[in-house]
Lab assay of single mutants.
Amino acid sequence: MATKAVCVLKGDGPVQGIINFEQKESNGPVKVWGSIKGLTEGLHGFHVHEFGDNTAGCTSAGPHFNPLSRKHGGPKDEERHVGDLGNVTADKDGVADVSIEDSVISLSGDHCIIGRTLVVHEKADDLGKGGNEESTKTGNAGSRLACGVIGIAQ
Score class of each variant (00 low, 15 high):
residue 2 A to W: 05
residue 3 T to P: 04
residue 4 K to Y: 10
residue 5 A to F: 02
residue 5 A to T: 02
residue 6 V to N: 15
residue 6 V to H: 10
residue 6 V to G: 02
residue 7 C to K: 01
residue 7 C to S: 09
residue 7 C to A: 09
residue 7 C to M: 00
residue 8 V to K: 10
residue 8 V to R: 13
residue 9 L to E: 03
residue 9 L to F: 04
residue 9 L to A: 02
residue 10 K to F: 03
residue 12 D to N: 06
residue 13 G to W: 05
residue 15 V to D: 04
residue 16 Q to G: 08
residue 16 Q to R: 13
residue 16 Q to W: 14
residue 16 Q to V: 11
residue 17 G to H: 01
residue 17 G to C: 11
residue 17 G to A: 01
residue 18 I to A: 04
residue 18 I to V: 08
residue 18 I to E: 05
residue 19 I to V: 09
residue 19 I to D: 04
residue 19 I to H: 00
residue 19 I to L: 07
residue 20 N to H: 06
residue 21 F to W: 01
residue 21 F to A: 03
residue 22 E to V: 07
residue 22 E to N: 05
residue 22 E to Q: 07
residue 22 E to C: 07
residue 23 Q to W: 01
residue 24 K to N: 14
residue 24 K to E: 11
residue 24 K to R: 12
residue 25 E to M: 11
residue 25 E to K: 15
residue 26 S to G: 12
residue 26 S to V: 15
residue 26 S to L: 07
residue 26 S to E: 02
residue 26 S to R: 13
residue 27 N to K: 05
residue 27 N to D: 15
residue 30 V to C: 11
residue 30 V to D: 02
residue 30 V to F: 03
residue 32 V to M: 13
residue 32 V to K: 02
residue 32 V to D: 02
residue 32 V to S: 03
residue 33 W to K: 12
residue 33 W to F: 08
residue 34 G to P: 00
residue 34 G to C: 03
residue 34 G to S: 03
residue 35 S to R: 14
residue 35 S to G: 07
residue 35 S to E: 12
residue 35 S to L: 13
residue 35 S to M: 05
residue 36 I to N: 01
residue 36 I to G: 01
residue 36 I to H: 03
residue 37 K to D: 13
residue 38 G to P: 00
residue 38 G to K: 02
residue 39 L to T: 02
residue 39 L to F: 00
residue 39 L to D: 04
residue 39 L to E: 00
residue 42 G to C: 08
residue 43 L to Q: 05
residue 44 H to I: 00
residue 45 G to M: 07
residue 45 G to D: 03
residue 45 G to L: 02
residue 45 G to A: 13
residue 46 F to D: 03
residue 46 F to I: 09
residue 46 F to L: 10
residue 46 F to V: 12
residue 47 H to C: 01
residue 48 V to H: 02
residue 49 H to A: 15
residue 49 H to L: 10
residue 49 H to Q: 10
residue 49 H to Y: 12
residue 49 H to G: 05
residue 50 E to R: 03
residue 51 F to D: 15
residue 51 F to K: 15
residue 52 G to T: 03
residue 52 G to E: 11
residue 53 D to G: 10
residue 53 D to L: 05
residue 53 D to C: 15
residue 54 N to I: 10
residue 55 T to N: 13
residue 55 T to K: 14
residue 55 T to F: 06
residue 55 T to S: 14
residue 56 A to S: 14
residue 56 A to W: 04
residue 56 A to C: 08
residue 56 A to G: 10
residue 57 G to T: 13
residue 57 G to D: 04
residue 59 T to D: 11
residue 60 S to R: 10
residue 61 A to F: 14
residue 61 A to W: 08
residue 62 G to V: 08
residue 63 P to E: 07
residue 65 F to V: 07
residue 65 F to K: 06
residue 65 F to A: 09
residue 66 N to Q: 05
residue 66 N to S: 08
residue 66 N to M: 03
residue 68 L to W: 04
residue 70 R to I: 14
residue 70 R to F: 10
residue 70 R to Q: 12
residue 71 K to F: 07
residue 72 H to S: 00
residue 72 H to P: 08
residue 73 G to R: 12
residue 73 G to S: 06
residue 74 G to E: 13
residue 74 G to M: 08
residue 75 P to G: 07
residue 75 P to H: 13
residue 75 P to N: 06
residue 76 K to W: 14
residue 76 K to M: 12
residue 76 K to H: 13
residue 77 D to F: 15
residue 78 E to D: 13
residue 78 E to N: 14
residue 79 E to N: 10
residue 79 E to W: 08
residue 80 R to D: 05
residue 80 R to E: 04
residue 80 R to S: 06
residue 82 V to Y: 08
residue 83 G to R: 12
residue 83 G to V: 13
residue 84 D to A: 04
residue 84 D to K: 05
residue 85 L to R: 01
residue 86 G to H: 01
residue 86 G to D: 00
residue 86 G to R: 03
residue 86 G to W: 11
residue 86 G to S: 01
residue 87 N to C: 09
residue 88 V to G: 03
residue 88 V to T: 02
residue 89 T to N: 15
residue 90 A to L: 01
residue 91 D to F: 05
residue 91 D to N: 12
residue 91 D to H: 11
residue 93 D to W: 12
residue 93 D to Y: 13
residue 93 D to Q: 14
residue 94 G to W: 01
residue 94 G to L: 02
residue 95 V to S: 10
residue 95 V to Q: 13
residue 97 D to N: 14
residue 97 D to Y: 13
residue 97 D to H: 07
residue 97 D to K: 06
residue 98 V to I: 05
residue 98 V to L: 08
residue 98 V to D: 00
residue 98 V to S: 02
residue 98 V to Y: 01
residue 99 S to D: 11
residue 99 S to K: 14
residue 101 E to I: 05
residue 102 D to N: 06
residue 102 D to H: 05
residue 102 D to L: 06
residue 103 S to V: 05
residue 103 S to T: 12
residue 103 S to W: 05
residue 104 V to P: 00
residue 104 V to C: 13
residue 105 I to M: 10
residue 105 I to C: 02
residue 105 I to R: 02
residue 105 I to Y: 01
residue 106 S to C: 08
residue 106 S to I: 02
residue 108 S to E: 12
residue 108 S to P: 01
residue 108 S to W: 12
residue 108 S to R: 12
residue 109 G to Q: 01
residue 110 D to A: 09
residue 110 D to Y: 08
residue 111 H to A: 13
residue 111 H to T: 11
residue 111 H to L: 08
residue 112 C to H: 12
residue 113 I to F: 02
residue 113 I to W: 00
residue 114 I to Y: 02
residue 114 I to F: 04
residue 114 I to T: 04
residue 114 I to D: 00
residue 114 I to P: 03
residue 114 I to Q: 00
residue 115 G to T: 01
residue 115 G to N: 02
residue 115 G to E: 00
residue 116 R to Q: 07
residue 116 R to M: 13
residue 116 R to W: 07
residue 117 T to I: 13
residue 118 L to Q: 04
residue 118 L to C: 05
residue 118 L to E: 00
residue 120 V to K: 00
residue 120 V to E: 03
residue 120 V to H: 00
residue 121 H to C: 11
residue 121 H to A: 10
residue 121 H to G: 14
residue 122 E to K: 11
residue 122 E to M: 08
residue 123 K to G: 09
residue 124 A to T: 10
residue 125 D to T: 07
residue 126 D to L: 07
residue 126 D to I: 05
residue 127 L to E: 12
residue 127 L to A: 09
residue 128 G to D: 02
residue 128 G to E: 04
residue 129 K to V: 09
residue 130 G to C: 12
residue 130 G to Q: 08
residue 132 N to W: 11
residue 132 N to T: 14
residue 133 E to R: 12
residue 133 E to H: 13
residue 133 E to C: 08
residue 133 E to N: 05
residue 134 E to S: 04
residue 134 E to A: 09
residue 135 S to P: 01
residue 136 T to Q: 10
residue 137 K to L: 14
residue 137 K to N: 09
residue 139 G to K: 02
residue 139 G to E: 06
residue 139 G to L: 06
residue 139 G to Q: 06
residue 139 G to M: 01
residue 143 S to F: 09
residue 144 R to F: 15
residue 144 R to V: 14
residue 146 A to L: 07
residue 147 C to L: 08
residue 147 C to K: 05
residue 148 G to E: 01
residue 148 G to F: 00
residue 149 V to P: 04
residue 149 V to G: 03
residue 149 V to E: 05
residue 150 I to E: 00
residue 151 G to R: 14
residue 152 I to F: 03
residue 152 I to M: 15
residue 153 A to T: 07
residue 153 A to Y: 09
residue 153 A to C: 13
residue 153 A to F: 07
